[in-house]
């Protein structure tokens, strides 16, 4: 037996459990993402709404199984989230003012679209900035947790949006992770993420 395998065998059970938890979260996220991409199909409104709903519920389920539990959002967390969301929305408009002239995506009907967009945004934050950052951060440190959650966030959008969105989503992932660290909970990144998503209706 080598020193490495000996060290691995002697690893504390808690460390191994957390590693398994991170693997479960990432594996579950990958599976849910691929299924959503397949279910989205030709992208009729109903198909996309159902695929989004299933995706959001699946992510919440994966996070809960991994041990994540909801908690009451703090007012400070909500305020940080509003600030973070404003940056996400305003920055692209400042960089490309012409976007103000462009219409939003507007995939009607709005109430269903908005409801499911909120569900998906919140579920992604619960899994990535909640459960995954907690699990990876404890074992490997916060930098690794931020990098891993941001890469996962960027890659999970590729099946629907293509590779072109990876740089922007990677950057957004780091920003949202920063909101999580600044506020101590998932409410801030969830609020910011939801605001950025909902803004696509108008811009």
């Amino acid at each position: 037996m080598t020193a490495a395998t000996s060290a691995s065998a002697a690893a504390p059970p808690r460390w191994r459990a957390i590693t398994h938890r991170a693997a479960w979260l990432l594996g579950g996220l990958a599976a849910a993402t691929l299924l959503r991409g397949a279910a989205n199909g030709a992208s009729s409104a109903n198909q996309a709404l159902l695929a989004g709903t299933g995706f959001g519920i699946a992510l919440l389920g994966i996070a809960v199984i991994a041990g994540w539990r909801p908690s009451r959002p703090s007012p400070r967390g909500l305020a940080i989230g509003m600030f973070g969301g404003a940056i996400l929305v305003l920055l692209p408009l400042l960089l490309h003012p012409v976007a103000l002239n462009a219409p939003g995506m507007r995939p009607a009907p709005f109430p269903e679209w908005a409801t499911i967009t909120l569900l998906v945004a919140s579920a992604e934050e619960v899994l990535l900035r909640g459960a995954l950052i907690s699990a990876v951060g404890r074992s490997y440190g916060l930098p690794a947790a931020v990098v891993m959650s941001s890469i996962a966030f960027a890659l999970m959008h590729v099946p629907l949006y293509g590779w072109a969105v990876v740089p922007l989503d990677l950057a957004a992932g780091v920003w949202l992770a920063g909101l999580r660290l600044a506020s101590g909970g998932v409410a801030a990144p969830a609020v910011a993420h939801a605001l950025a998503d909902l803004a696509t209706w108008w811009i």
Binding site: P92, A99, T117, Y161, P167, I203
Partner: peptide, 25 residues
């Protein structure tokens, strides 16, 4: 994160919405 957002935002095609997620319909 803010620095990366600025760099990625400037490199993004003009007119690309601030699309980090959402439903594709």
């Amino acid at each position: 994160g803010l620095l990366l957002l600025i760099v990625a935002g400037r490199a993004a095609p003009v007119g690309q919405p601030p699309l980090y997620d959402g439903l594709v319909i």
